[in-house]
């Protein structure tokens, strides 16, 4: 190949790579480099996404783009995987994480109505975050506290026997906490 100087200058890889490295930080870049030494780097995609989420709290498009470039896996594949698994969050999580149990015991005790009330009060769906960034709402299957059904947790604090009419005051409590 004729290597005139112009041949190199058209390549935008150095900038693309630098941006990706900056977005992910050194620690995650090292993980990706290790994965690339292995036989099937793409098989480490999920593990890498876990690390990114642990670091940043969620997976932004910029994170997924950066992982795709450095791991050299198509970004549609990366974003397809990230959007498939419930564990991966594609939006930043709120200050308080509400997790409502929708398992069998909680469900027959009315968890669906509690969940609906939460969605109405917060104006979001399960898996979303309020616009003010205060609350994220998630549904889960069985927290192992069926005796306290219906049960939810806020940042790990357990709230037992929640009824729809208790939802408003419960949220109010955290709004005050958030302001404090």
């Amino acid at each position: 190949m004729n290597t005139e100087p112009s041949v190199q200058s058209m390549d935008n890889w150095p900038e693309v790579e630098a941006t990706a490295r900056q977005v992910l930080g050194q620690k995650i870049c090292q993980h990706i480099e290790q994965a690339r030494q292995l036989k099937r780097p793409e098989s480490h995609l999920i593990a890498i996404l876990h690390k990114v989420q642990a670091e940043f709290g969620y997976l932004a498009p910029a994170h997924l783009d950066a992982v795709a470039q450095l791991l050299q896996v198509p970004v549609a594949t990366v974003s397809g995987v990230a959007s498939f698994y419930h564990y991966f969050r594609l939006h930043p999580r709120g200050k308080f994480m509400i997790n409502i149990c929708l398992g069998t015991a909680c469900y027959v005790k009315g968890a669906d109505r509690v969940a609906q009330k939460l969605m109405d009060e917060l104006g979001i769906q399960l898996g979303e975050t309020t616009k003010d960034g205060l609350f994220s709402l998630e549904g889960c299957r069985c927290l192992g506290m069926c005796g306290l059904a219906p049960v939810l947790t806020v940042d790990g604090d357990v709230r037992a026997e929640v009824t729809p009419d208790r939802v408003a005051s419960l949220l109010e409590e955290y709004v005050r906490k958030g302001k404090a």
Binding site: P61, V75, A76, S79, G80, S83, F84
Partner: peptide, 15 residues
């Protein structure tokens, strides 16, 4: 790529 899962699956470009 197919994004999301189940009923909500959509074929779309990344993100």
């Amino acid at each position: 790529s197919q994004h999301g899962r189940g009923f909500r699956t959509v074929v779309a470009p990344a993100h």
